[in-house]
């Protein structure tokens, strides 16, 4: 019994942290499922069954997923959430065409079912029907504007088709929806860099730096950049170097973004920050890996 309790607790933390960890979830979930307590622990039991079903599909144990779905559909007959799970199982076990037909039937009944619609789009993409996927996804986003996931997917599809300007447009909607997330700013900056819009890119990299470093300017000069700040500094350094090398670049922005002034100073600062990031001793006082390479790269002009 203690086993089951600890497994349930672990699974609950996975759920709240949105952690996929399918294999672990599956191993623990099967213990709970065998002990047959899922139905007796009330509300939480249903969330657990949904989680286990998804994990079981992930690891390819569709028999377990079937079992979970059976329990769920007994309790919630005709619930859109269970329908969606059934669709996912269908995708895993049958042809994409069968799944598409299932989704289409559900959408005919309720055309505004966002979850099903999104699954349908993902199936289109998986089948290689990129055009159809983009068309549906645009329509989906026109209806459900606030779906950040959808905008990111659209940007991703455009990027894989080398349509970086369109990807940047989708990302601008993502930025509008979640202006507080530096990861998306970084993604937009990298997309702009790939699209060749260097002035826009360097400004966005700097925005990412501005969002992620500390606010206290006194301690800032001594602090070590970590995490995505380092990546953003890399981006700044890359852009600054290209702008310095080729002055024409600063006037060739597709979005008519002016290149930053003091580009020399920014280049200097980026080099310094990157050096600091790689110079600080690690856990055992060792020097960071790749330090020499970085120093050599940064010294190149």
């Amino acid at each position: 019994m203690a086993d089951v309790a600890s497994a349930l607790q672990k699974l609950a933390t996975y759920r709240t942290q949105n952690n996929r960890a399918s294999q672990e979830t599956f191993d623990r979930g099967v213990i709970v499922l065998k002990s047959d307590v899922a139905k007796t622990i009330g509300e939480e039991g249903w969330a657990f069954l949904e989680q286990l079903a998804l994990a079981a599909i992930d690891v390819g144990r569709t028999d377990v997923a079937d079992q979970c779905l059976q329990l769920l559909s007994d309790k919630f007959h005709g619930s859109p959430r269970v329908d969606c799970l059934e669709g996912i199982l269908l995708e895993a076990t049958q042809t994409p065409e069968a799944a598409l037909k299932y989704y289409q039937d559900l959408l005919n009944e309720d055309s505004a079912n966002a979850a099903i619609w999104k699954r349908q789009i993902s199936v289109y993409r998986r089948m290689g029907k990129v055009e159809k996927a983009v068309e549906e996804l645009s329509q989906f986003l026109d209806t459900f504007y606030t779906d950040v996931e959808g905008w990111l997917e659209l940007a991703d599809i455009y990027s894989t088709c080398n349509q970086y300007t369109s990807a940047l447009q989708s990302l601008s909607h993502v930025l509008l929806l979640t202006p507080q997330n530096p990861f998306y700013v970084l993604q937009a900056a990298e997309t702009a860099y790939t699209a060749g819009d260097i002035p826009l890119s360097i400004r966005m990299f700097l925005m990412a730096v501005d969002m992620t470093d500390a606010d206290d300017s006194v301690a800032l000069a001594d602090s070590t950049p970590t995490g995505i700040t380092v990546r953003a500094w890399y981006g700044v350094k890359l852009c600054a170097r290209r702008l310095l090398k080729d002055t024409r670049l600063s006037n060739s922005s597709a979005s008519q973004t002016p290149a930053p002034k003091n580009i020399n100073l920014i280049d200097e600062l980026a080099t310094e920050r990157l050096r600091v990031a790689y110079s600080s001793p690690g856990k055992k006082g060792e020097i960071a890996q790749g330090r020499d390479e970085l120093f050599a790269w940064a010294a190149l002009i």
Binding site: L200, I202, R203, M204, L206, M207, V209, D210, D213, S217, L220, A221, T257, P260, K261, N262, L265, I266, E268, L269, R273
Partner: peptide, 16 residues
Amino acid sequence: VGKDVEERILRKYGKI
């Protein structure tokens, strides 16, 4: 936000 971000950053790190 990005209009004068370079100045903000440089000022923050004490470069200007």
